[in-house]
């Protein structure tokens, strides 16, 4: 028993009833927390280059990301990252720390289903699409770059 017209009317009615929240506080929180995470990355990067002057710039960036990923993974494990995330929203989802959190949280959550079928399988339940889409896109870019290079 499906009545498309009635459904549309009801959906429109519900949409109008949904409480509207002010977007500014959450946008501001996302802005300054996200900005701070990036500053932290910048700080780690410069500290690395200061401590190891011979380090290549590219390696320093890789180390920076590894350290940020470690911090996020640890904060996830001790149950703190989600609290920051609830406050900051995009501020902790968009940085690489959000990627780390999206891999760590299901890994820890599903450990009770076993290491193979729990941790290993579910680890990519959130971040899987990111890796898949990123890898596919990089192959496409590489192929186009190759073809353009031939011409």
């Amino acid at each position: 028993m499906k009545n498309e017209k009635l459904n549309q009317a009801y959906n429109a009615y519900v949409e109008a009833r949904i409480p509207k929240t002010k977007p500014w506080p959450s946008l501001f929180n996302a802005f300054w927390v996200g900005g701070l995470v990036c500053l932290l990355g910048q700080g780690i990067n410069e500290l690395l280059l200061y401590l190891f002057p011979s380090m290549a710039e590219q390696s320093a960036w890789s180390w920076t990301l590894v350290i940020l990923i470690f911090i996020a993974s640890f904060l996830t494990a001790i149950g703190v990252y989600d609290k920051i995330g609830k406050f900051a929203g995009g501020g902790t989802i968009v940085p690489i720390t959000g990627f780390s959190n999206s891999i760590s949280s299901p890994a820890i959550e599903f450990k009770h289903e076993g290491i193979i079928y729990g941790t290993c399988v579910k680890m990519f339940s959130v971040a899987g699409p990111v890796i898949v889409s990123g890898v596919v896109a990089s192959i496409v870019v590489g192929l186009i770059y190759f073809i353009v290079g031939l011409i």
């Binding site: 996830t76 989600d82 609830k86 929203g89 959550e109």
Partner: peptide, 17 residues
């Protein structure tokens, strides 16, 4: 939560509804 939504430790926000 783990069956219907997200892992407990995932840092995401809840919508007003």
């Amino acid at each position: 939560e783990r069956q219907f939504r997200f892992p407990l430790e995932l840092g995401c926000q809840r919508v007003p509804t």
